[in-house]
Design a protein around this nucleic acid. Structure first.
Lengths: 171, 171
DNA sequence: CAGTTTTACTTGAAGACTCAACTTCCCTAT
DNA sequence: ATAGGGAAGTTGAGTCTTCAAGTAAAACTG
């Protein structure tokens, strides 16, 4: 009699097939190379890593160019701790400033400074160019569409909010 | 008269369209969340980050369970410096050992130890499960195939070997 | 409204990564 | 042979990330 599969299944694991392996390795290679490439480009030209650049972009798009720390962290998909350190650094560089939240004394706003806006203006062209050259210029419209769908699915599956959606939470 | 586009084009940059923006942000979100998720899973269960796990896998698959440092670095798409540090750590953990290359006195082999093989055996099931749950279980076969193709294209465009293929190198 | 739990954010130490500089050795051309 | 240049790998300092623990204020709960 075969044992029934359980939630914590220690039976023979479902290894990746050959095809899946190839997909997975291509994914790892591409994401590693790309993140590396963008980090290097931005570090060289703008003096900050890709994530930090992303933070400035989020702030630039926010109303009043400001966001609560937690909102910013969630939007950028990073931990609050990481954001705290990052903002400290960006503050030191003069691109972001902190402001107290009047309605919640625990709260802090991260605010994009004018210098922050300028640094973004100066380096956005180079950054889009890098992204285009590495990704969009190489993919057909169908592939771009497909990439978007796939990435949305994966991202949704990992959102903290949905993290336990498949767990025996509400039976 | 319009100026002709040059290689270092400082004209109005080709910003991402709305659709491209959405694709790109989905990509950033998904890769950030996924790398984070796998790092956390492996750090918790196996005591090492995802990249280090990948290094052990490469070694496990290599003949004699050994690879030259540079080969390993290239195969994992990381710099030699990073690998040097990583192997130092893995050596400290007892999962990898260094060996001199007899034919080239500058050369070093990274060799997977038996403990390294064991740690891999123990934690591979949990890792595949995580990858399946986050990626493959959520994608149709067509999407998986598409993902593979797309990632291969992107990766190829960034390989160090091809890095300057579009530069005026050999006219 | 006092006590408890949550939420918001920060901190410091430890680990990981980058960059530039460095050592050692191989290879080639003269 | 030998000088010059390149390749293999390492190192250390500085930066970034993580993790666990911390403070302070809000939000519950009886």
């Amino acid at each position: 009699m075969k044992t029934a599969p359980t939630s914590a299944d220690h039976g023979e694991p479902r290894w990746l097939t050959d095809g899946e392996q190839r997909v997975w390795r291509a994914y790892i290679d591409a994401t590693t190379l790309l993140e590396d490439h963008l980090d290097r480009q931005l570090q060289r030209d703008a003096g900050m890593p890709h994530v930090y650049y992303g933070l400035l972009v989020k702030l630039a798009e926010a109303p009043e160019r400001r966001l609560r720390m937690t909102e910013l962290a969630m939007s950028a998909k990073i931990t609050r701790s990481r954001l705290s350190h990052a903002v400290a650094r960006l503050e030191k560089s003069g691109w972001v400033r902190r402001e107290d939240c009047p309605s919640d004394k625990r709260g802090q706003f991260a605010v994009l400074t004018d210098e922050g806006r300028d640094v973004l203006r100066r380096h956005a062209p180079g950054h889009v160019a890098a992204v285009r050259q590495a990704v969009f210029d190489r993919l057909t419209p169908e592939q771009q569409k497909s990439l978007g769908e796939i990435m949305r699915i994966v991202a949704e599956g990992l959102q903290p909010s949905e993290a336990g959606a498949d767990l025996p939470w509400l039976r």
